[in-house]
């Protein structure tokens, strides 16, 4: 299956899982909202340009926003993590040229610890910005801190489960590409 087709299917699946499964669940606590959808942006290929990443992230976030009746909220957070993604990937790539030898960030291509750090940092930025935007219209500082921490914890748990259930086998490509 080509990378493009794979990503289009992922786009639809992530939106549907977020809207029709995760947001349908009765909330556990007001600090906790289960976010998983932005994993799509973390899984986009290394080879995409930064402008490409940001435009895809913008449309992806806006699609979710239209389901949630919050136009712009998730789009803004998605664009932020798409912008920061290349910086963090460059910092964390351990082997020389892993971003040339593998297609997209994953446990196999980056290793457990760097991939975990990559997911953790971007999750924190995503939730921090999202809750900050919410905080502008309501809530208190306690709400901001509590929600960022609790939601980050739940999201990391969900991402771990997703990575274990749908283990992505990344093929090693030679440098001749």
């Amino acid at each position: 299956m080509s990378e493009l087709l794979k990503n289009i299917i992922r786009f639809i699946l992530f939106i549907f899982v977020q809207v029709f499964i995760l947001f349908k669940m009765p909330p556990l606590h007001r600090f906790i909202s289960p976010y998983l959808y932005y994993l799509y942006i973390l899984w986009l290929p290394f080879s995409m340009s930064r402008a490409g990443l940001m435009s895809v992230a913008f449309f992806f976030g806006l699609t979710l926003d239209y389901f949630m009746h919050t136009p712009g909220l998730h789009a803004a957070a998605c664009v932020l993590i798409a912008y920061l993604r290349p910086f963090i990937v460059n910092m964390l790539i351990s082997q020389e040229g892993a971003d040339k030898n593998y297609i997209s960030p994953s446990i196999t291509s980056m290793g457990w610890a760097p991939y975990g750090t990559y997911v953790f940092i971007l999750t924190l930025f995503h939730h921090g910005y999202l809750v900050f935007l919410e905080w502008l219209s309501f809530g208190s500082f306690l709400y901001f801190i509590g929600k960022v921490i609790a939601t980050t914890g739940i999201s990391l748990l969900l991402i771990l489960l997703t990575e274990l259930l749908f283990f992505r086998k990344e093929k090693f490509r030679t440098n001749t590409v």
Partner: peptide, 13 residues
């Protein structure tokens, strides 16, 4: 480009 997209998203919001 990042700033343009942010401004667009926030103006929607």
């Amino acid at each position: 480009f990042f700033l343009v997209l942010q401004v667009l998203a926030l103006s929607f919001l």
